[in-house]
Amino acid sequence: MRKFQKNLTVSEIQFLGGKYVLLKLTDTDPLPEILPGQFVEVLTPNSQTLLRRPISINYVDRDTNQLWLLVAMIGEGTRALGRLREGDQLNLVFPLGNGFSPVQKAGEEVLLVGGGVGIAPLLEYGKYLRENGASPSFLLGGRTAADILLLDKFESIAPVYITTEDASAGEKGFVTQHSILLEKSFDRISVCGPKPMMVAIAKYAKLANIPCEVSLENMMACGLGACLCCVEKTVKGNVCVCTEGPVFDINDLTWQI
């Protein structure tokens, strides 16, 4: 898939509470082919940081030619993204990485599990699955109700199941404790979130014999497979998360699950 370096225009900024900001970017040309689960490397303007920041693609709106980035403002680079104004230009290298698995069979039940800002790429993936004959469901976890972002958008695509640690939304507890896992059987699971959450779901999936893939976010510089900084240990040895991933089958990783 062809990669581009382009300036996109920040057409809308939504602060979603806490440390989260949603950037809607518009391309002057039609957006290139993008797979769900792919990411961008973005330059952070007016920041002390040097390197680009990898951010997963949250949503692609072909009608408005918009690409959405859901950003958690955690460090200097991502905080600089929160200081952008509408009309600013943002330089992206994209689309990068392999993306989530394509539809395997019509009507397959796919559970998309997300936590924190890790829910970002699941929105686009859920839309893709729905549009291509699969049957996605979302299972989203957070500490509190405020961590469940873009809920309206998720609900417009597929059923949403929620857990929060303080019971302020959905069921109390972690995603692995949600009753839907007992009530419904799924053909496969895709996960993106904090590593402990991904490991917990991977353990569950392995025990239940359900195929499972996870999206990793190792620190990286280039995003192109050149710097070899973002490696993950796999059954094939150290491989770049930016090119061989970010999505991996849990059986290809060396996690203790």
Binding site: Q48, T49, M220, C227, L228, C229, C230, V231, K233, N238
Partner: peptide, 19 residues
């Protein structure tokens, strides 16, 4: 195979790597 992850750290106007 190179070294274990993490292999990079951003520093003021630069980066460290231990690939």
């Amino acid at each position: 195979q190179g070294n274990d992850y993490p292999r990079m750290a951003e520093t003021p106007s630069g980066m460290l790597n231990c690939v």
